[in-house]
Amino acid sequence: NQASVVANQLIPINTALTLVMMRSEVVTPVGIPAEDIPRLVSMQVNRAVPLGTTLMPDMVRGYA
C-alpha cells in the first residue's frame, strides 16, 4: 500500500504548499504519492482543499 499526500489543514485556493500543510497517509483512492511531498513545496493549489482531503494531481498547479 502506497502512502498518498493528505491535507493537514484547510488549504485555501491559490495557496503555496508548505511541509506543515501536508502529511502522508495510506488512503483510497490513491492520490499524489507521499514521496513527491518535497516537490510539492511552493506549488499552488487551484482549489480549496479541506482538512483530510487526498491531494490529486489536478489539484496542484504545475504538478501533472
Rank of each mutant, 00 (worst) to 15 (best):
T15I: 05
Y63V: 05
M59Q: 05
M43L: 09
T15P: 00
D36N: 07
N1P: 11
R47W: 09
P33S: 11
I11D: 01
M56S: 07
P57D: 05
I13S: 10
D36M: 13
L17A: 00
P57V: 06
P12I: 06
I11S: 00
R23V: 06
V27E: 03
L51G: 13
T53E: 14
Q9P: 01
S24N: 08
V60H: 01
M22H: 01
I37Y: 03
V30P: 12
N8L: 07
I32P: 00
P12R: 07
Y63T: 05
A34Y: 07
Q44D: 07
E25H: 08
G62W: 06
A7W: 02
V5T: 09
P57C: 04
V26W: 12
R23N: 15
A48C: 05
V49G: 01
N14A: 13
T54I: 09
I37D: 01
V45S: 07
L51D: 10
N14Y: 13
V60D: 01
M59H: 13
T15M: 07
P33Q: 06
N8P: 02
A48N: 12
A7C: 03
R23G: 13
S24G: 14
V27L: 06
S42Y: 07
M43H: 10
L19V: 06
P12L: 07
E35L: 08
N14S: 06
Q44C: 04
P33A: 11
V5P: 02
M22T: 02
P57I: 10
V30M: 14
M43V: 05
V20W: 15
V49D: 02
P33Y: 08
E35C: 04
N46F: 05
G31R: 02
S24R: 12
V6N: 02
L40W: 02
T15N: 05
I11N: 01
R61I: 15
G62M: 09
G31N: 01
V49I: 14
N46D: 12
M21R: 03
R61M: 11
I37E: 04
L10C: 04
M22N: 01
T18C: 04
V49S: 02
E25L: 06
L10I: 11
G62N: 13
I32T: 02
P50K: 06
L17M: 09
V27T: 11
D36Q: 14
G52H: 11
L10K: 09
G52E: 05
L40D: 01
V27G: 04
A64E: 13
R47A: 10
V6G: 01
P50Q: 06
A64K: 04
L10D: 12
P50M: 08
M22K: 00
D36I: 06
T18V: 07
D36S: 10
R61S: 12
Q44V: 12
I13F: 15
P12C: 04
L17Y: 00
N46G: 12
A16T: 08
M21S: 05
I37S: 05
A3M: 15
E25P: 01
N8S: 15
N46W: 06
V27N: 04
V6H: 02
V6S: 03
N14Q: 09
Q9H: 10
L40S: 00
P12M: 11
A16G: 10
S4Y: 04
N46Y: 09
Q9L: 08
I32D: 00
V20C: 03
R61G: 08
R39P: 03
M22A: 00
I11V: 08
M43W: 05
